[in-house]
Amino acid sequence: MSEIVLDAVEVSRDFDVSKPWLQRVVSREPKRTLRAVDNVSFAISRGTTLSLVGESGCGKSTVARLAVGLYAPSGGEIRFEGQPLSAARAQAALRRRMNMIFQDPYASLNPRWRVRDIVAEPIRAFGLLTARDAITARVGELLTQVGLAPADGEKYPHEFSGGQRQRISIARALSSEPEFLVCDEPTSALDVSVQAQILNLMRDLQQRLGLTYLFISHNLAVVRHMSDRLGVMYLGRIVELGPGEDVFRTPRHPYTRLLLDAIPDLDMVGKSRTPVGGEVPSPIDPPSGCTFHPRCPLANDRCRREKPAHTKHGNVLVACHAVEEGRTA
């Protein structure tokens, strides 16, 4: 097995969602916490892409932020190149090797900065280059690499379209010469033809620079296109984790199957199907046992009582009593 770049071991993250202190004391309410990420483990090998997919509120964006150290885990540990993440982030030489690409191309670039300063910021922050000319040359190189012109550096973000802004965002992420990139829904705000451009660019860059990606998305087709390994998340937990091809060819967890069934697809012209009912419950007050049981066609008493552990099926880890017991109906 190749070298592990990022390694998450039983990571959890809680958020305090209590009312303000005074209000809580007056109305005698207890503190309330929301478990956004619950006991999540995964590892990403160098030069590969691990995708996390799930609906809103499943905790995938929280994992993204945990992975670059924007949040600290409430439990468990994240290691970057074998070192605890907090220790790794304390060293500029290691911190430089991870960076992030964001979802909203309109909010991820400071509107008051010129593009050349946006792209150069990590270079300056880490002191990778100091001479003015060298920085200008490097910024031009980075902009060319993402399909823009060096002269674009003089402009402000509002002069660019959404897709071009996302290219700028990628150039900024690359400017610290990272090896590991966390991509939080990088194309979900873009039109499909632009999405194709950005996805192709990200794959090209990965091959050329040997990048490792943690790719977060709600779009299964995009995830299928991008990932080597895939984790499906539901209410803070990874319910199925394995090589992308295996998960897509034989989805095992009922939720993965539901998702794959639910997606409107070009190949579905004229076909009809029976959609699965129910909606994602609130993570503040999750269901008992397996959190998916209220929507699951295979649920029984054990599912309502007992949280399922991950069991191995081929190359795939699945957290489901029904799959473990071989129940199918």
């Binding site: 194709a196 794959r203 087709a221 299928r224 794959l260 697809d265």
Partner: peptide, 24 residues
């Protein structure tokens, strides 16, 4: 044609998506 080709498919995986260069 370009629009349809640029949509990633659930059914089969391709190395590169078809892309229309530029923007509207």
């Amino acid at each position: 044609e370009g629009l349809m080709g640029s949509i990633p498919s659930l059914e089969h995986r391709v190395e590169r998506l078809r892309q229309i260069d530029g923007a509207m």
